[in-house]
Design a protein around this nucleic acid. Structure first.
Length: 479
DNA sequence: TCTGCCACTTG
DNA sequence: TCAAGTGGCAG
């Protein structure tokens, strides 16, 4: 990549798990093998495997692009993981965020991505809460965890809780696992969590595809894009008819075809390349390939007091969350297919099965203030969480402050600072998932946040109120 | 660079 | 049949 070969690279790791038979990950129908470990506070032994890693690698080698639209666009490949090592009976919250990979703005010219300037200010970091959250370890581990419904948008005023990104900027999705068991002190500074990221899932956000190789990969692998597949004569004829043109016709895709450089744009690009993923809380795991590859310059983001975190939660839950391209894999078990089981009795009786993703947004995702019991309808509400207020207009205004420092707040708080800028000094690289001991950074205020204008009618988004009351926030249900 | 519309697909 | 998710493309 221009300007120093700014490719997607891997975060510096703290630890390497050599027990990572990557080959097992190459087969969609083969369970991924353990590759990571989170050590302290009950998070030890947690391993996360990226599903369809091989597909991700294909994109990564070309330079993954993700379309962002005003209405929100899903990611493809969709982000699915297999999680193991969770306490079957403990409750966990799984959430994702997408953080800037660096502070550059990119352009696609001469068949390659190059840096064209400094990145625009990061959007308010938003966290996407998996709609099943919170759920028991048994729930998370018995099936693939799909983040298919996560959507990316370039609408800075997005009211739907989608992840807000800037076009032509590079991003890195991350997965956070937060222990939500009350007995673990969830809602306190003792809350355990760990963060995982897969460097091959990094991407550049675009409003239209730049690299035609990416377009072709999407078309070839995304069932919804089947209509654009095919290149034989029949297909050409069909497309000609569609376009009302004489046959033969050059496929539009061919017309737009660009010669692309070989190798990955995002980091090494080597075949059989890097498949690292890290637990940012002090333990970073990689595949064996990674062991052989020098760590790159990009690392974990640092908390940024300037950032904001917003929280969204709705309890509408559709019956589909499987990746359309994964109809056949062994783990195909959409979260929506998994109705609350006996071990998930914590679901609110009237709301079970109708949950929807939750979005955190802003610079202060003070997860430490989010008790397991605060997750909307999904959980029993504490007296302090009595729904009281209707929605007010969504805003990106600054949050009300909370003096508390929080490790968990740093989870989402990491959301915006460029990953690459904090390699040498990010506290997260060695951060423990255990009890929060010493604030690594000043914690920006967390504030009461009202999310949705009633006119937008997000099914059941909730408003999170944090009043710095011993880590117990309040949720308000829209009326 | 972005938006809205289109034809097409899946479920 | 329909809603939602696809990339193409004109503007």
């Amino acid at each position: 990549m221009a300007n120093g070969g700014d490719r997607f690279s891997i975060p510096e790791r703290v630890d390497i798990d050599t027990d990572s038979p990557k080959e097992n990950l190459r087969e969609n129908h083969t369970p991924p093998s353990p590759q990571t470990t989170c050590t302290p506070q009950g998070m030890e032994g947690i391993k996360v495997y990226l599903h369809e890693q091989e597909l991700w690698e294909k994109f990564h080698e070309v330079g993954t692009e993700m379309i962002i639209t005003k209405a929100g666009r899903r990611m493809f490949p969709c982000y699915k993981v297999k999680v193991t090592g969770l306490n079957p009976k403990a409750k966990y919250i799984l959430l994702m965020d997408v953080v800037p990979a660096d502070d550059h703005r990119y352009k696609f010219a001469d068949n390659k991505w190059s840096v064209t300037g400094k990145a625009e200010p990061a959007m308010p970091g938003r966290l996407y809460l998996h709609p099943d959250s919170p759920a028991t370890g048994n729930h998370w581990t018995r099936q693939l965890v799909s983040f298919q419904k996560l959507k990316l948008t370039n609408n800075h005023l997005d009211p739907f809780g989608h992840i807000i990104l800037n076009s032509m900027h590079k991003y890195q999705p991350r997965l956070h696992i937060v222990k939500a068991d009350e007995h673990n002190g969830f809602g306190s500074k003792n809350t355990a969590f760990c963060t995982h990221l897969f460097s091959e899932t990094a991407f550049i956000a675009v409003t239209s595809y730049q690299n035609h190789k990416i377009t072709q990969l999407k078309i070839e692998n995304n069932p919804f894009a089947k209509g654009f597949r095919g290149s034989d004569d029949m297909e050409l004829h069909r497309m000609a008819k569609i376009q009302g043109k004489e046959y033969p016709v050059v496929p539009r895709s061919s017309v737009r075809q660009r010669v692309c450089p070989t190798g990955s744009l995002f980091g090494g690009g080597a075949r059989g390349g890097l498949h690292p993923y890290s637990c940012e809380n002090g333990v970073t795991s990689t595949t064996q390939d990674l062991v052989a590859s020098p760590p790159a310059h990009y690392s974990l983001p640092q908390p940024d007091p300037q950032e904001h975190v917003q929280v969204y939660h709705s309890n509408k839950r559709k019956a589909d969350d499987s990746c359309p391209a994964e109809e056949h894999h062994l783990y195909r078990k959409p979260y929506t297919d998994s109705s609350p089981s006996e071990d998930e009795s914590y679901y609110h009786p009237s709301e079970a099965g109708v949950r929807q993703p939750c979005m955190f947004a802003g610079s202060e995702p003070r997860l430490d203030e989010l008790s397991c019991t605060t997750w909307s309808y999904s959980c029993p509400l504490t007296p302090a969480m009595t729904p009281t207020e209707p929605y007010t207009t969504f805003s990106h205004q600054p949050y009300c402050s909370s003096p508390q420092n929080s490790q968990l707040s740093s989870i989402a708080h990491q959301g915006s600072p460029p990953l690459g800028d904090s390699l040498s000094h990010s506290p997260y690289q060695t951060q423990s998932s255990g009890p929060y001991q010493t604030p690594q950074h000043p914690s920006p205020p967390f504030r009461e946040y009202h999310r949705y204008p009633a006119s937008l009618s997000p099914p059941h988004y909730l408003t999170l109120h944090t009043h710095n009351r011993g880590g117990v926030p309040e949720w308000s249900e829209p009326t």
